[in-house]
Simulated assay, not measured.
Amino acid sequence: MLHRWFNTLFKDELRVFIYPQRILLLHLKRTFKNGFKQTLVHQQFVDLPQKTETNGNETAQWDGLVSTLQQVLQTSHWQELAKSGAYAKVIISNHLIKYTVIPWSIALSIKSERQAYMQHRFKIAYGEPSKAWDLCMSEPDFGQASIASGVCAALLKELHQVFEQQGIDVNAIHPHLMLASNQMLQHIKKKKNQKHFWFVVIESGRACVSLIENSEWRFIRSIATGEDVAKQVDDLIQREAVISNANTQLPIFWYGKTPGSSTALKADSRHIKINLHHFELLNQQLEKRLKNWVPV
């Protein structure tokens, strides 16, 4: 792991954020002058074809995404970056990811057993379609549950092929929840004894709601959202509290665009906003510009 990190330290990075409405591409560089912290060299936003109806067809959810990314990577700036030996990291929107919690079991002592049990849990949660997904789970701490993610294996394969065709090594492909969780962990490190809370990740049209108890994942659910996101999240928390006997009055950490229009949310001090990852702020700033733009 250390060797892999050292090899990428002096290379430029292509960071790709895949959202349902656009792709955000960032050219990042480390230099001795800036203390080897990553700085932004170049950015590009690319709108994706909008799908009005997918009828449950997974392929339709990302149809056009791969071809659009392929066309963009063939433009001059990204071609030059590829020639320089840069590597890529990809963050995929929660719209394209499924999640579930994998309970701890002392019987699952080896990786193959954990993989088989994870497949079983996904089949219970999502049915037969989960057989076509690439599944991955966090390394469990002793006695604690893990969070697991599933993404269409065909999508991952096509993404790898696109970067391979451009001569760019893919360092990692992560679900958006992982990036948000890292921001959440940074936040709670500053808060002593903050081990019990609800965690809500907001994207355009989707909310990923989870419960953390004793620093352990207990529940996760991803839902489509409408105009009153705060009410939808509150309703989901209330239902889950009844089912699992959870505390509805725990703090709620929000990552993403906080639905501040709700009067109830504003009046409730339990709601805490977590700072966005500094590179992801670019997407939110773009959304604000598009919202405020009025054609003449």
Results as ranks from 00 to 15, higher is better:
residue 2 L to R: 12
residue 9 L to N: 05
residue 10 F to W: 09
residue 13 E to P: 00
residue 16 V to A: 15
residue 16 V to I: 15
residue 17 F to N: 00
residue 18 I to A: 05
residue 20 P to Y: 03
residue 22 R to K: 09
residue 28 L to T: 10
residue 32 F to V: 08
residue 40 L to K: 13
residue 51 K to F: 06
residue 69 L to S: 08
residue 71 Q to L: 14
residue 72 V to T: 15
residue 81 L to D: 05
residue 86 A to W: 06
residue 90 V to Y: 05
residue 91 I to R: 04
residue 100 T to N: 10
residue 100 T to W: 06
residue 104 W to H: 13
residue 107 A to F: 12
residue 111 K to R: 12
residue 117 Y to M: 08
residue 122 F to C: 05
residue 122 F to L: 06
residue 127 G to D: 03
residue 141 D to V: 09
residue 142 F to A: 10
residue 145 A to G: 07
residue 150 G to Q: 03
residue 150 G to T: 00
residue 153 A to P: 08
residue 154 A to R: 06
residue 156 L to G: 11
residue 163 F to V: 07
residue 167 G to V: 14
residue 168 I to R: 09
residue 170 V to R: 06
residue 173 I to A: 12
residue 176 H to Q: 09
residue 179 L to K: 12
residue 182 N to Q: 08
residue 189 K to G: 09
residue 190 K to F: 04
residue 193 N to L: 13
residue 193 N to T: 04
residue 198 W to R: 05
residue 200 V to S: 14
residue 203 E to D: 14
residue 204 S to L: 07
residue 210 S to C: 09
residue 211 L to E: 04
residue 212 I to T: 15
residue 214 N to I: 00
residue 217 W to D: 13
residue 218 R to P: 02
residue 224 A to D: 12
residue 228 D to V: 01
residue 232 Q to I: 00
residue 237 I to K: 02
residue 238 Q to N: 13
residue 244 S to N: 13
residue 250 L to K: 08
residue 259 P to W: 12
residue 260 G to D: 08
residue 266 K to E: 06
residue 266 K to R: 15
residue 266 K to L: 15
residue 268 D to Q: 06
residue 271 H to Q: 14
residue 278 H to V: 11
residue 278 H to E: 12
residue 282 L to V: 03
residue 286 L to W: 08
residue 286 L to T: 08
residue 286 L to I: 00
residue 287 E to T: 06
residue 294 V to W: 06
